[in-house]
Design a protein around this nucleic acid. Structure first.
Lengths: 248, 248
DNA sequence: CGAATGGTTGATCAGAGTCAAAATTTGTGG
DNA sequence: CCACAAATTTTGACTCTGATCAACCATTCG
């Protein structure tokens, strides 16, 4: 990860610039943030629910899932994250984490102290705005997932999750729908869609049979990008796909 | 609403101060924002999905629900709002609304132009921080709802929603658990919990039979505050009940 | 090569949805 | 204040999606 060390925050800047253009000075401030790089193997824990966090993480490489656990023990993934995402920016304000973070693949994160992020935020309004804007986009995604889990049947629910992941991945520069391979296991997709792994497996089977997705050695990819969006009822507007709002 | 006209933003200031203490100057800036008061009767629309919004709303009195519609027509309420809440602050950045807002009761809102909110935000870092922090709290609630809808059974799901509403209402100064009456219809509770109205009605019956809630002429209230939290598996930490973070 | 993890299949079951109708409550106008 | 209409709540009968339980296969990786 020498490249990352040279310009650790390139992906973050790319993401922030997409929603909310930054000034040169703002970019320089981000680049100047004190960070430390951490690598984690797949399926390891970054933060546990209830843990007090003094650091926030920026995802540089790999995929991460954010989850919550109910008192009865069942687990739900509430979001997936890709390079450039701020994983737990709420720790700038809130101490004990309301969620856990686990790595889906091998991962590289940059850790930044909450105080550093906060002071940067207070001194540079443009950065405060960009962080805020990015948090609002996260919230829009949560709303969509809520609709997804609450009101779509298993098949379109899974299709919708795959569509969203695909669009976000391609916005993050990770590949086009046709080429892209999903990094998560079926168990993780089940946890993210509110289904059981067994039922999810059957749904995956259906989707593959219709040619909407393709299974190759346990890896999933999109088979028919138009058709899967149709069965998902997927409209990407909520992702602010053509954002860079407020260029005013 | 003459009281409101005199100090329209008292509830908003109360809420922002709870999570993130404001300076005198910040408070004064908020009070100085140009606003216009609007009253709406119960069950009317404030904003429709897809609509371009030039104004943001602060809820001064009454209750509002935020909803989304799937392409198949089914509707989901993704959050409830109470006095002091910023109803659609995302319109500072994003144009077409990804959700609709409808009034649950008669309602008074203050409308503020997005440009005014934005410029206030750029000139006063303390306010940017407070708005951002409040958005992060909203996101924590979305995560909890996601867990709720995806992983709890109907009974504890409904109980959880009622617990959260109760705590938020009491934080907003609207009454204690014992005294508080829920303002929404069963159909609305069903829409918020991802259930059908028919099934919800049966769950309400169960909860009432166990004495957890009380039905009086179609109005619901809490019957046993300890017991309902237990069946909900409700832990209010995610609401930052004792917030006012970062007093540093 | 063998253990572990992840994926697949089958049989059965239950929680919540659907459809349909009746009973209550609420709101409105006379 | 009453009567009627509209909205909301309640009940019953039946169905179906997705959960559960229990094996068994396939890959990957040490």
């Amino acid at each position: 990860m020498d490249g990352a060390e040279l310009d650790a925050f390139a992906a973050l800047l790319r993401k922030l610039n997409r929603v909310c253009a930054l000034s040169e000075a703002d970019e320089a401030t981000i680049r100047g943030l004190p960070w430390s790089i951490e690598s984690k193997v797949a399926r390891s824990i970054l933060i546990r629910e209830g843990e007090h966090a003094a650091l926030c993480s920026v995802l540089l490489d790999g995929y991460v899932a954010k989850g919550k656990t109910a008192l009865n023990g069942s687990r739900q993934i509430v979001s997936f994250h890709m390079p450039g995402d701020l994983l737990d920016i709420e720790h700038v304000f809130f101490r004990p984490s309301d969620h856990n973070l686990h790595t889906v693949t091998n991962v590289v994160v940059a850790r930044v102290a909450r105080e550093d992020l906060r002071s940067v935020t207070l001194s540079r309004p443009g950065l405060a705005e960009a962080f805020w804007c990015s948090s609002l986009l996260d919230a829009a995604i949560y709303r969509q997932w809520l609709l997804n889990v609450a009101r779509r049947n298993a098949k379109s629910r899974v299709a919708h999750m795959l569509c969203e992941f695909t669009v976000r991945a391609s916005m993050a520069g990770l590949g086009s729908p046709a080429a892209f391979e999903f990094p998560m296991t079926q168990v993780e997709i089940a946890h993210a869609t509110g289904l059981t792994p067994v039922h999810l497996n059957r749904i995956i089977g259906d989707l593959a049979e219709q040619g909407l997705i393709v299974r190759r050695k346990g890896r999933l990819s999109i088979g028919d990008w138009i058709a899967i969006q149709r069965t998902a009822g997927f409209k990407p507007a909520y992702l602010e796909t053509n954002a860079r709002v407020l260029l005013v």
